[in-house]
């Protein structure tokens, strides 16, 4: 992997964490019960923490070799990467930017995505890339809990009332087409992920959908219309009052 690829990978990891973290944070104050409001806000904070670490690693990389890519505010910082890029420059997977929808869509999205992160971070923590080893190792503990928490909800909703089952099945239909983008090449990662999803779906009484057309484009900057709204809210202050602090 050359430096540009490494930089893009770091951005993908950071953007994924930032955007899904922002989505989770939208529940703050709106959770179905106080305890779950705090739970999902904690998860949001975990994600923002991961995003910071990956952005810092990405900033270090590009500052060492500013010629590598053009179009970035230099010297790059975690803040400039998060707040001063436009949506076409974001490298997150589409599944992270979709609206929260109801509690079923919210928890299923976290489950599908954090299960992917779990196996990915497990690989990254032992990979040769020193810049991500330590971050992945620390993040893995957080993600392990996210998987457990969200899988519990998928099972509860699937194996719950008629209404909860209807909602979680709708969530599966809605989100499944966004999971293909996580595995653009056939890989061991995909097999591990599929096994985990299969296991939880079985317990929840859910069925993995037939092979279907999959959305993609996030990692090359072609996003859904939803990302722009997130960035507008997230970046407004820094764009309107550059460098302001609070």
């Amino acid at each position: 992997m050359n430096k540009t690829q490494q930089f893009n990978q770091l951005l993908n990891l950071a953007d994924n964490a930032l955007i899904i973290g922002h989505r989770c944070s939208e529940w703050c104050g709106h959770g179905p019960v106080l305890e779950q409001d705090i739970a999902i806000s904690n998860i949001a904070l975990d994600y923002i923490g991961q995003a910071r670490n990956f952005y810092q690693a990405a900033a270090t990389l590009i500052n060492e070799d500013p010629e590598m890519l053009t179009g970035f505010v230099l010297p790059a910082t975690e803040d400039s990467l998060a707040y001063l890029r436009d949506q076409r420059e974001f490298r997150n997977h589409l599944i992270t930017e979709l609206p929260n929808g109801d509690w079923a869509v919210t928890t299923l999205r976290i489950f599908l995505f954090s299960a992917y992160q779990y196996f990915l971070y497990t690989q990254l923590k032992d990979s040769g890339d020193l810049s991500v080893n330590a971050i992945a190792e620390k993040a893995l503990k957080e993600v392990t809990y996210h998987v457990k928490w969200s899988a519990d909800w998928v099972i509860r909703l699937g194996d719950g009332t008629e209404e909860s089952n209807r909602r979680i099945r709708h969530a599966v239909d809605h989100l499944w087409a966004y999971t293909g983008e996580l595995f653009l090449q056939e890989s061991e990662l995909q097999q591990q992920w599929l096994q985990k999803v299969q296991l939880v779906f079985e317990e929840a009484g859910l069925v993995i959908p037939e092979k279907t057309w999959m959305h993609q484009g996030g990692t090359s900057g072609n996003h859904t219309e939803h990302l722009g709204f997130i960035l507008a809210e997230m970046q407004f202050l820094q764009r309107a009052y550059p460098g302001s602090q609070w």
């Binding site: 939208e26 609206p99 929808g101 109801d102 079923a104 869509v105 909602r167 709708h170 809605h174 939803h226």
Partner: peptide
């Protein structure tokens, strides 16, 4: 964050 979800019962 709930854009257009109303029709889905969400």
């Amino acid at each position: 964050g709930d854009y257009g979800e109303a029709k889905n019962g969400a």
